[in-house]
Amino acid sequence: MYFQDLILTLQSYWAARGCVIQQPYDVEKGAGTFNPATFLRSLGPEPFSVAYVEPCRRPADGRYGENPNRWGAYYQFQVLLKPSPKDVLELYLGSLKAVGIDPEVHDIRFVEDNWEAPSQGAWGLGWEVWIDGMEITQFTYFQQVGGIPLRPVAAEITYGLERICMYLQNVEAFVDLRWNEQYSYADIHLQAEVEFSHYNFDEADTELLFKHFEDFEREGTRLLAKGLVIPGYDCCMKASHCFNVLDARGAISVTERQKYILRVRKMARTAAESHVEKRKALGFPLLRDEARRIEMLGGGDAQ
């Protein structure tokens, strides 16, 4: 199965199960969880199921394309199911079958893994999913996002696309993956990976990035105060990316590191709180169960 077919198969599998198929969000991020389709949609009582492929950037993980499976940029396939359905694990196993991983042929295991994202004020419980000893998916029941406890709880499924594809194509490194018949993963992404490794480790202008961080923080805080939730949250994502590059560049000391994480978290929390308030003010329109909607609006004061 080609890399692009893996994405297409997962998209059609989850589309057929009622998920909105969104496209990647156009701001740099370290994980698909940052995408507002997960971060903001997981908040509040409105049901929402979504699937999308997400390019992720983790500058510190760049290895100039030389490490077989550690890259500074890679893909996740992200599924958010809210509320978490009772048969969510069966649905997930069905998706593995759909891409050609037959549970009868492999040893599939759910190994405890408690997920936590300090810069997002988020945590959840779940598993790493192992196939024959290799982690291919992170499965999490979100309990809290942006410092806010969730009700209903959403299930997040994050597939490591390259790893699954390495398995399906029986190759040992990202660079050897076939994207389609004509092109390899390396053909598509290797140049960027090498250049960004140089940028992230050696070339990034730290003074400029520190300034950008401050600017995005100030701008985001200002926008959030005005109730412009999504533009404000974009600033939070951008500040977070500046931090990630500065971190890869070795420009942030251990003590300062924690302080920057807290600054990002503060913005993420404000965005989360503003988002819930705003959706509530709108009357939680996507919550179509009327009795539940009235309950979640705090009984009777629905507009």
């Binding site: 077989p68 499976n69 009868e104 040893d107 295991r109 024959d132 000893g133 040992e172």
Partner: peptide
């Protein structure tokens, strides 16, 4: 210790071996 009886254990062993080598 796997949790499965599979038709071809070599597949499961090879998969685990690949992870270990990495």
């Amino acid at each position: 210790v796997s949790n499965m009886i599979v038709r071809d254990p070599a597949v499961v062993v090879a998969g685990n071996g690949r992870v270990l080598v990495a």
